[in-house]
Design a protein around this nucleic acid. Structure first.
Lengths: 130, 130
DNA sequence: TTATTTGCAAATTGTTTGCAACGGT
DNA sequence: ACCGTTGCAAACAATTTGCAAATAA
């Protein structure tokens, strides 16, 4: 319970999970993270990984990206977009320059309040098109 | 096998499923469609619904939208975007005018070939903000 | 001490598949 | 008759949950 009532504790599990994702821009899934963390703490459970990832998300340290049917975690919380390679499924961060940004406030119909928008690009990455 | 080798057959099930979605812009999920079709053909199975929806998608009669962890089906196949209400989870079609469209070809880094892009708006719909 | 977090296993959700029977063509 | 399609149930994948034991504060 990091964000409601009650104290949050600094557990070894939370710490290891955070270290495993904080500098990773490859957008890993929960069980990719599980595999990594398990190398340091073999008895950790997948449920614990999920619970701690949720906590990091609600503490705004991670963003979730839904791709296909799995959630991917992204430590880059600043505003950015993604490029998804349709050949290898890798996900790349894309910084869209402010000038090109869409003005979502004006787009939908009357009475709809837009608070955010998301843009994703699909194609073939440098690595796969070689 | 509608799109590979072999003939496709016109079954009662396929016909009913198509009728249940073709004029529907509410972006129903597979089991919402299942519920509807079951009223006409009570012994139809969910697997059949999934298989026929897949067929309609590969015949380009439907588009799939992944929202959360469920697929939603959209008979509007022309290029358009979506507005997702964060309060009621309803999905609305948004036609973005061509001039405002982003030019994806120029956005990502060198060596990346962009073939398509998708834009989704999040916010509160007219109905919920009332 | 004591409330939060863990590990484990079982439950859930959404989707796919194997297979014998069914039914278009 | 042939072969695609169906219904059913079981398999699957990703995620969540219940609960008793473990542990941070």
């Amino acid at each position: 319970m990091a964000n409601s009532r009650g104290q949050s504790r600094n557990t070894k599990q939370l710490e290891l999970i955070w270290r495993a994702v904080k500098d990773d821009s490859s957008h890993p899934t929960a069980d990719q993270i599980y595999d990594r963390v398990r190398k340091k703490l073999s008895h950790i459970s997948l449920g614990t990984v999920y619970r701690n990832l949720q906590k990091l998300v609600s503490d705004d340290k991670l963003q979730v990206l839904m791709l296909g049917r799995a959630q991917h975690f992204d430590p880059l919380v600043e505003r950015h977009q993604h490029f998804i390679c349709e050949s290898c499924d890798r996900v790349f961060d894309v910084m869209v320059d402010r000038q090109r940004e869409i003005k979502p406030a004006k787009l939908p119909h009357e009475g709809f309040k837009v608070t955010s928008h998301q843009l994703a690009f699909y194609g073939v990455c440098k690595h796969c098109s070689a």
